[in-house]
Design a protein around this nucleic acid. Structure first.
Length: 657
DNA sequence: GAGGAAGGGC
C-alpha cells in the first residue's frame, strides 16, 4: 500500500489519467484526513484477497465474501461492485448494510459509480430510506446517480418527490439523458397528485421533443403508457402514430391502453392491424393478456378461443398472467366450464389464478362454489390477498349469502391481518343492501374509520334503487353529488328511485340538475356475437337497417307472450306517462332487441349470449325469463355486474340481482 | 463502467 500527501488542488477527475493502470482503485479514493489535508489512499494492484472475495461473490458465497472483506485492507471498487450485486441476489439488507459500512470506511463513500449501485440495491431491497441517504450524501452526482434515485423513488410510488428532484436537477443545469425521461415519465404515473402530474408529464413530453428524442422507442413507448394511465387515449394514440420506429412493446402499450380505457373494440382492431401490418412482429404473452381482456370486455367468445389456440401453439400456456386472464376471459364470455378447465389444467397457480376462479363463480351467481374454492385455497396454505376478499365477498353478495359474507369480512382482520379497504366496505354495503338490510349497510358506513368514498355511497344508492328507499337514497346521493359531481349515473339512480315512488316533482328536479350539469346519461346498449362477428343493438339506431324489423319482431313476440301471461313491468320509467306509453318504451330496450336478433340469427339449440352495458331492468328480466320458456331457448345475459342464465322460464339469479 | 418501455384477479 502506498500512502502520500497530495496537493489540495489535485482534482479527482485527473487522477485516472495519472494512475491509468489502477483506475478501479482510485476514482473515489479521497478521504479527508483528520489534519484536514487530503490523504489519498491507493491500494496496491488488486490483491489476492480481492480476487478471493470476487470469486466468492461469483460463486454466490456472500457470507464468506463478507467475512474475507473484513480482513482486506484495500478492497477495490470492483470488489464492492460484485459484493453489492451479491446482496441484490441474496436479497439481504443486513449484508448490504455491512458492505456499505465497509465501503465508507475504505473511502468509497463519494464514488458516484458505487453510489448508483447502492441506490439501486437499496431500492430492490425496498429500503427507500437508505437509498435516499446515499443520494443525499453523494456530492458529485453524475446523471447515473440522478437516474438511479429517480428510478428508486418511482418504484416506491414517490412520484411527487421525483418530479421535485427533477426540477431541482434542471435548475442546477444537469442535462437529462434518454434514461432520465423514462424514469420521470413513470414518476408522473405513480404520483398521486392527479391532474398536476399529467401536466408535469406533458411538460416532460415537450422536453423530449425539444431535445430530439422522438425516435427513441423506449421514451416514446413510456409516453404512450403515461397518457394511457391518465386515460388520455387520444394523446396516447397521437404519440404512437408519430413514432418513426415502433416495436412489439409500443404496439402492446397502445393495445393495453385501449383495453384498459373501455375501448375494447379498438384494442381488437389494433391487434388485427398489428398482425397484418407487421408480419415479423409476433405477439407475446403481454400482448395476449390485453387482447384477452378486450375479448372478455365484449364477450367475444369465439375470438377468445382463437387466441387461446394461438397461446397453445406458441407455448405461452405456462405463463401465469396469460392463464389467469384466460380463466377470466372464458368466465366473462359466459363459458364458466371452459374457464374451470383452464384453471384445472394449470400446473402451477398463484393467488391471482385462484382469485380469477373465485370471481368467475361469483359473477355467475354461484356463491357457494366461490366460497368452497376460497376454502380449498386456504386449506392448501395459500394466503388470501385483499382481492381474494373482494372476489369472495362479491360472490356472496350476488348470491345473497349475507351471513357467510359477514363472517368472512370479520375474519379478514382477525385471521388474516388484512385491513378492509374502501372496496371491501363497498362489498359489504352491497351485500347487506341487496339483501334489503339497508340500515345495517348504513351502519357499516357510519362505523368506518376512514372517510367513506364514492364507491361505498354508490353501493348504498344502488341498493336503495333495488328496494326503493327514498330516505337513504337522498342521504347517499347528497354525498355522491359532492364526491363525484361528474358521474351522471348517480343522478339517474336517484331519479329512478323517485320515479318508482311516483314523486314526479322530485324526478323533474333531478333531471333538471342533470341537464344543468351538462352530463350525458349513459344510454343502454346490448351486443351479441354471431359467427365471430359482434352486433351492437341500441333502442334508437338510424345506422342499423334491420332495426325496424327487429322492433316489430319484439312487439309481436310481446303480444303473443302477453296472451300467455307476461305482464310488462314499467315502474322504472322516468316519465309520468300512461301505461301503454310506458310499455312501448320498455319494449324498445336494447336487450330485448338483442334477444330478438339472437332468435332470428342463431341456430336452433344454440345458447343466445348477450352482453349489456347497464344493469338488467326489471322488465327485460321478466321478458327474457318468459321467452326462454316460450321459445324454448337458453339465453345467457351478462349485465354490468353479473350473469343471468335464463332457462325454462327461470333465471339463475333466482330474481336476486 | 452502469440504468429504461407494455401485461394477470375486483
Amino acid at each position: 500500500m502506498f500512502q502520500f500527501q497530495t496537493p489540495q488542488t489535485l482534482q479527482p477527475t485527473i487522477l485516472p489519467a495519472l494512475f491509468h493502470h489502477q483506475r478501479h482503485c482510485i476514482t473515489a479514493a479521497f478521504r479527508p484526513s483528520p489534519a484536514s489535508s487530503v490523504t489519498l489512499t491507493i491500494s496496491s494492484p488488486t490483491t489476492n484477497k480481492n480476487h478471493s472475495i470476487q470469486s466468492l461473490c461469483r460463486k454466490g458465497q456472500l457470507k464468506q465474501a463478507i467475512h474475507l472483506l473484513s480482513h482486506e485492507q484495500n478492497p477495490t471498487q470492483y470488489t464492492y461492485e460484485l459484493l453489492l450485486q451479491s446482496c441484490v441476489r441474496e436479497k439481504s439488507l443486513a449484508d448490504a448494510l455491512t458492505v456499505h459500512r465497509s465501503l465508507i470506511d475504505n473511502g468509497f463513500d463519494q464514488d458516484p459509480f458505487l453510489a448508483t449501485k447502492l441506490i439501486t440495491l437499496y431500492s430492490e431491497l425496498d429500503s427507500i430510506e437508505h437509498a435516499r441517504q446515499v443520494f443525499d450524501k453523494t456530492t458529485h452526482r453524475t446523471i447515473y446517480v440522478w437516474n438511479a434515485i429517480f428510478r428508486a423513488l418511482s418504484l416506491s410510488g414517490l412520484g411527487e418527490e421525483v418530479l421535485n428532484l427533477y426540477r431541482r436537477m434542471n435548475r442546477i443545469g444537469m442535462r437529462s439523458d434518454r434514461f432520465t425521461y423514462t424514469y420521470v415519465l413513470k414518476a408522473c404515473v405513480v404520483s398521486d397528485s392527479g391532474l398536476s402530474s399529467l401536466w408535469a408529464g406533458k411538460e416532460i413530453h415537450a422536453h423530449v421533443l425539444r431535445h430530439g428524442y422522438e425516435s427513441q422507442v423506449h421514451i416514446m413507448t413510456t409516453l404512450v403508457d403515461m397518457y394511457a394511465k391518465f386515460g388520455c387515449v387520444e394523446n396516447a394514440n397521437l404519440v404512437f402514430s408519430s413514432m418513426p420506429v415502433k416495436n412489439l412493446v409500443s404496439w402492446s402499450a397502445l393495445i393495453a391502453c385501449f383495453a384498459k380505457n373501455d375501448r375494447p373494440f379498438e384494442a381488437l382492431r389494433l391487434f388485427r392491424e398489428m398482425m397484418l401490418e407487421s408480419g415479423d412482429m409476433l405477439p407475446n404473452s403481454v400482448t395476449m393478456v390485453s387482447v384477452l381482456q378486450a375479448c372478455a370486455a365484449v364477450s367475444a367468445l369465439d375470438q377468445g378461443k382463437l387466441i387461446h389456440g394461438y397461446i397453445l401453439r406458441k407455448g405461452l400456456d405456462s405463463i401465469l398472467p396469460v392463464m389467469s386472464t384466460l380463466v377470466t376471459m372464458y368466465a366473462r364470455c359466459g363459458d364458466l366450464d371452459l374457464g374451470k378447465n383452464v384453471f384445472n389444467q394449470m400446473d402451477k397457480r398463484d393467488i391471482v389464478s385462484w382469485n380469477s376462479l373465485i370471481s368467475s363463480y361469483g359473477i355467475h351467481g354461484l356463491g357457494s362454489k366461490a366460497l368452497a374454492v376460497f376454502q380449498e385455497m386456504v386449506q392448501l396454505g395459500i394466503s388470501p390477498s385483499p382481492i381474494s376478499f373482494v372476489s369472495v365477498l362479491g360472490a356472496c353478495s350476488h348470491s345473497g349469502l349475507v351471513d357467510e359474507g359477514k363472517i368472512l369480512f370479520d375474519s379478514m382482520v382477525t385471521e388474516y391481518g388484512i385491513y378492509p379497504t374502501m372496496e371491501h366496505y363497498a362489498c359489504m354495503v352491497d351485500l347487506l343492501g341487496r339483501a334489503n338490510r339497508l340500515y345495517e349497510a348504513a351502519k357499516i358506513i357510519a362505523d368506518m374509520r376512514d372517510e367513506p368514498g364514492p364507491e361505498v355511497w354508490g353501493s348504498l344508492l344502488g341498493s336503495c334503487r333495488i328496494h326503493c328507499n327514498v330516505e337513504l337514497a337522498e342521504r347517499a346521493s347528497r354525498r355522491l353529488f359532492e364526491l363525484e359531481p361528474r358521474n351522471a349515473g348517480n343522478y339517474v339512480l336517484l331519479a329512478d328511485i323517485y320515479a318508482e315512488a311516483k314523486m314526479w316533482d322530485e324526478v323533474k328536479r333531478v333531471k333538471k340538475l342533470l341537464e344543468a350539469s351538462g352530463l350525458q346519461k349513459v344510454s343502454g346498449c346490448s351486443w351479441i356475437e354471431v359467427r365471430r362477428k359482434i352486433y351492437l343493438l341500441k333502442s334508437v339506431d338510424e345506422l342499423n337497417p334491420q332495426i325496424e324489423q327487429i322492433h316489430a319482431f319484439v312487439e309481436n313476440l310481446s303480444k303473443e307472450m302477453m296472451k300467455k301471461g307476461y305482464v310488462p313491468q314499467t315502474k322504472d320509467i322516468l316519465y309520468d306517462l300512461d301505461s301503454e306509453e310506458k310499455e312501448r318504451i320498455v319494449l324498445g330496450h336494447s336487450e330485448k332487441l338483442a334477444v330478438a336478433f339472437g332468435l332470428i340469427n342463431c341456430s336452433k339449440g344454440e345458447t343466445i349470449r348477450i352482453t349489456k352495458n347497464l344493469r338488467l331492468c326489471e322488465d327485460c328480466h321478466s321478458f327474457t325469463k318468459f321467452i326462454s320458456k316460450f321459445a324454448d331457448r337458453e339465453i345467457l345475459v351478462r349485465d354490468i355486474n353479473r350473469f343471468h342464465h335464463f332457462k325454462d322460464g327461470e333465471c339463475s339469479c333466482k330474481d336476486y340481482w
